[in-house]
Simulated assay, not measured.
Amino acid sequence: MNDTQATFREARLRHNITLHMLMEDTNIDLRAVILMDQYNQGTPAHVDQLLASLSRLSGTEYSRRTKNIRGVTFKLHPDYESIPSDEAVARLAADHQQIQQKNNKL
């Protein structure tokens, strides 16, 4: 898979970065992290913060300038309420487990 064709989620998983790691690194609400990860959308500020975090955590530069993440949609008012809190917590746990299972197979 070519970096120029990666979605945010594909790049994140390639580097074994969890949603929790992004949330801790950026102090962005979990639902905003999930919107970027699942739907490639967020406010311009959140998108930039999450790309910078992905860069720090992966050691590979990801940014609007490098244009190596595809399909990002900027929204001034993303629908955070579309992700209920209990669903967000469940996705966080499932994501952690998925990364652990992937690492155990290596």
Rank of each mutant, 00 (worst) to 15 (best):
D48P: 03
T7Q: 04
I34A: 09
N104V: 02
R14Q: 06
L76N: 11
N2I: 02
V89K: 02
A94I: 08
N2E: 10
L92T: 01
I17M: 08
S55H: 10
S53C: 01
S58C: 06
K67Q: 07
A93Q: 08
T60D: 15
Q49G: 09
I99Q: 00
E24P: 00
L54E: 00
A11W: 02
G71C: 09
D37L: 10
L35T: 15
A32G: 10
S85L: 02
T66I: 12
Q5A: 13
A93D: 03
M36G: 08
N40W: 08
Q5H: 15
Q38H: 13
L30M: 09
A93M: 09
N27D: 12
A11Y: 11
R64V: 04
T66M: 13
L22T: 02
T60C: 14
H15V: 10
F74L: 12
S63R: 08
K75C: 09
Q41K: 15
I69K: 03
A32N: 04
E61A: 11
H15N: 12
Y62L: 13
Q38V: 11
S53V: 03
Q41N: 12
Q38C: 14
T7E: 04
N2L: 12
E10V: 12
Y39K: 15
R70Q: 07
G71L: 15
D29F: 06
F74C: 11
I34Y: 10
L35N: 15
T43A: 05
H77P: 00
L35Q: 14
R14I: 08
Q38G: 09
Q98R: 14
T7F: 06
R14D: 07
E61F: 03
A93E: 04
N103M: 08
V89S: 03
A6S: 10
A88V: 02
T66G: 07
H77G: 01
A93W: 07
L35W: 12
D48S: 14
Q101I: 01
R9D: 01
F8I: 08
T26I: 06
R70D: 11
V89G: 00
D25K: 13
R31S: 09
N103I: 04
R64Y: 07
T60G: 04
R91E: 05
N2F: 07
D86E: 04
H96Y: 07
H96E: 12
P44H: 13
K105A: 14
M36W: 08
H15C: 15
I34L: 15
R31T: 12
V33T: 12
A90D: 02
N104S: 06
D86C: 01
H15A: 15
A6L: 10
G59L: 10
A94T: 01
N104Q: 14
V33Y: 06
A90V: 06
Q38F: 05
A32S: 14
L106H: 11
P44S: 12
R65H: 03
R12Q: 02
G71A: 11
N68W: 12
V47I: 15
G42T: 00
T4N: 15
K102D: 05
A45W: 07
V33E: 00
N27E: 11
V33G: 00
E10N: 06
L22V: 14
V33W: 03
Q101T: 03
Q100H: 00
E81P: 04
A90S: 07
T26E: 11
L22H: 09
